[in-house]
Structures are given as C-alpha cells and as structure tokens.
C-alpha cells in the first residue's frame, strides 16, 4: 500500500528532514508515526501526499509512483487518500453537510451518491443531527469529526492524519481514536503522525519512530 525505499529529503535551506528511510505499510494496517517536534514526521506525511518531492529514493502509494508522476496526476493520487489535519481545516461559511459534500463535489461525484455518502459518513462520526450547523457552532472534537467525515467520504484506501488530536482534550481524543479504529476495521489503512503518548500506548498498534530524520524503531503493537 505504501512503499518507501531509501528516501531522503533535504530542504533548500540544507536541513535534512529524512535520511535513507525504508518503510513498507500493508493494506489494512494502522500505523503511528511518532517522534519529537522537528523529527521529520510532517515531511514523511508531505511526501506521501506529494506535497513535497524526495531528494532521493522511491515512493509508491496506492500502487502509484509518487516520485515520477506528472503534476496533472497528483489530484488522482490524492483522491485515493483521506487527509486530516490538527487544525481541522473546515470552511467556516459552509454547513457540516456542505463541508463534507465539498470533497465529493470537487471530484464531480454524482449528486445522488453524494447525498447518500455524506449521510452515511456523518452517521459514522456521530454527527447526523448536526448536518445543518456551521463549524463555528461546533466544539473542537466535533469539528475534527467533520474533518474525518470529509476525509473518508470518497472511500479512500488510505487515511493520513497529521496530529489529529493535537488540539483536543484526552476524552475527546479517545472518541476520535474510536472513530479511526472503526474506519480501520472496515479495511482502510491508517497512517497517523502524533506525539500523544497516551493514545499510542493505549491503541497498541504498529509504531514507527523517527528521530533526526532516521527511522530508529519500527515495532508491531508498539509503545510511544
């Protein structure tokens, strides 16, 4: 599902964010990427989304060669990925329903399917009754659930989350993690960058630790 071979990334300011990283993630896995701030977690995520290109190495995501694809193929790579950020990134002038539907609208999904899919994912994240609300009327946890609904509405093979619980209190974070677990149980691969120790220790999933750009630990059912 995700295949990184000898991947290095140096930024123009000569900061080496990743060095000779080799990682394979299979279909249906739930993987935490952990490490201190500036360790290279965000770069790892950006490379998967093709927001950045590696300086060296090969990256394959969802069967697509991320490094050699043309710019026009990038949208089609991203349609197979659901992305979630720490700051939710919802559109404040759109309702919950519209925010989720937006992800289907931009890939020109048929309206009938759109209605059904949005209702179904709002049900999964437990916000069916809030579909008319605007993001500003929701709590942080609820906003993140809308963001999750938006990420999974196009039924992506992989969900990539960058610190999704970073702005949430522990109880709310656990609620969010249960949603991720349900998504994973349905067969979706999940890659989550986090430095929330309690969550990583509690979930007992595969843990990849990055430190100063190197993978220093790759452990099944690992701890923080």
């Amino acid at each position: 599902m995700i295949h990184m071979k000898n991947v290095s990334k140096a930024y123009p300011n000569k900061v080496i964010a990743l060095e000779r990283v080799n990682v394979d993630i299979n279909k249906g896995e739930f993987v935490f990427i952990v490490g201190s701030s500036g360790a290279g977690k965000s770069t790892f995520i950006k490379l998967l989304l093709r927001e950045e290109l590696p300086t060296f190495g090969e990256i394959e995501v969802n069967g697509k060669d991320v490094v050699h694809m043309s710019q026009s193929e990038v949208p089609y790579l991203r349609r197979g990925l659901g992305v979630i950020f720490q700051d939710y990134r919802l559109l404040p002038d759109k309702t919950v329903f519209e925010n989720v539907a937006f992800a289907m609208q931009v890939i020109e999904a048929p309206r009938k399917i759109m209605q059904k899919s949005v209702n179904s994912v709002l049900d999964i994240v437990g916000l069916s009754d809030r579909y008319k609300d605007f993001p500003d009327n929701l709590s942080g946890g609820e906003q993140q659930r809308v963001a999750i609904a938006r990420a999974i509405v196009n039924d992506p093979a992989i969900v990539i989350a960058d610190e999704p619980t970073g702005n949430l209190d522990p109880d709310t974070s656990w609620g969010i993690m249960q949603i991720f677990q349900r998504i994973n149980d349905a067969g979706t691969t999940i890659v989550m960058a986090t430095h929330d120790k309690a969550i990583v220790d509690g979930m007992k999933k595969r843990v990849i630790e990055i430190e100063s750009g190197h993978v220093i630990r790759d452990q099944a059912r690992g701890y923080y």
Partner: peptide, 14 residues
C-alpha cells in the same frame, strides 16, 4: 486560499 488548499488536498484538479 484555505478553500483552495482544501480543494487541492481532496484531489480537485487545477
């Protein structure tokens, strides 16, 4: 710009 960035992340073409 935020809307544009979100569109890019969910796979909208340029």
């Amino acid at each position: 710009r935020k809307e544009i960035a979100i569109m890019k992340y969910v796979g909208a073409t340029d």
